[in-house]
């Protein structure tokens, strides 16, 4: 079973939102097509998004996927 509390995929969405005119979680959620709570869970590294959502987020910020998400092996 996946341990949701300690996911190895980290991200810098919070930082990217800040540099994108302080985009809110709600605005990002609407652009991606998920709920604000899902964006919040991704930001806190408590939920790992699917590749589709990860690519969408990276595309919105004009970054490559590995610049937004980093896998940190335990």
């Amino acid at each position: 079973m996946i341990n949701l509390a300690t996911l190895p995929i980290k991200n810098k969405i919070r930082e990217l939102r800040f540099f994108a005119d302080e985009m809110t979680q709600q605005e990002l959620a609407e652009l991606v097509g998920v709920t604000r709570q899902t964006i919040m869970a991704i930001e806190k590294c408590k939920y790992s998004p699917t590749l589709e959502v990860a690519f969408k987020i990276a595309e919105i910020f004009g970054q490559s996927i590995d610049e937004v998400f980093q896998y940190q092996s335990v």
């Binding site: 097509g33 998920v34 709920t35 709570q37 899902t38 869970a41 939920y47 998004p49 699917t50 589709e52 959502v53």
Partner: peptide, 11 residues
């Protein structure tokens, strides 16, 4: 708004 969005991948 949320009702129209339906279930996302986490849901």
């Amino acid at each position: 708004k949320a009702a129209n969005l339906g279930a996302d991948e986490r849901d």
